[in-house]
């Protein structure tokens, strides 16, 4: 009985720590990148995987109760809606950026072929 409790705690703690590491990587990424779309790529990672792992850890620590079902609902809803939110924000950014050459310069490949 005690061994089972220790296994439950260790498994839950491992998943919660993994989720926390993903959150820290997300935060560092959002601060280090220089353009909005790169930052969004880093932010979407924490919104799906980070929350998924943390909630999975709490689910394991709770055992088989009604609370675990509710946590399962939260995970499913987050995984459905987070990509939609990212798409809508990206749409806004791409539409309102009038001169994308300032932040994302495009290299012309034909010039490189002519030079070489």
């Amino acid at each position: 009985m005690t061994v089972l409790s220790w296994i439950k705690f260790l498994a839950g703690a491992f998943f919660i720590l993994a989720g926390l590491v993903v959150f820290v990587i997300q935060l560092i990424g959002v601060f280090r990148f220089r353009y909005v779309l790169n930052r969004m790529h880093a932010a979407a990672m924490g919104d799906t995987l980070g929350v998924g792992l943390v909630l999975l850890g709490v689910l394991i620590l709770n055992g088989l109760t009604m609370a675990s079902l509710k946590i399962g609902f939260i995970i499913v809803f987050l995984w459905f809606t987070s990509p939609v939110a990212s798409h809508v924000v990206t749409n806004l950014e791409v539409m309102s950026r009038e001169k994308p050459e300032e932040c994302c310069p495009v290299k012309d490949l034909h010039e490189e072929d002519e030079q070489s």
């Binding site: 989720g19 959002v30 969004m40 980070g50 709490v58 924000v89 806004l92």
Partner: peptide
């Protein structure tokens, strides 16, 4: 930009959700 701020608010909401569950 505006999109930066919307992304930051979304991130904060997700971290708050994790805190409430814990």
């Amino acid at each position: 930009t505006v999109a930066d701020r919307i992304i930051a608010v979304n991130m904060m909401s997700t971290m708050v959700i994790a805190s409430i569950v814990i």
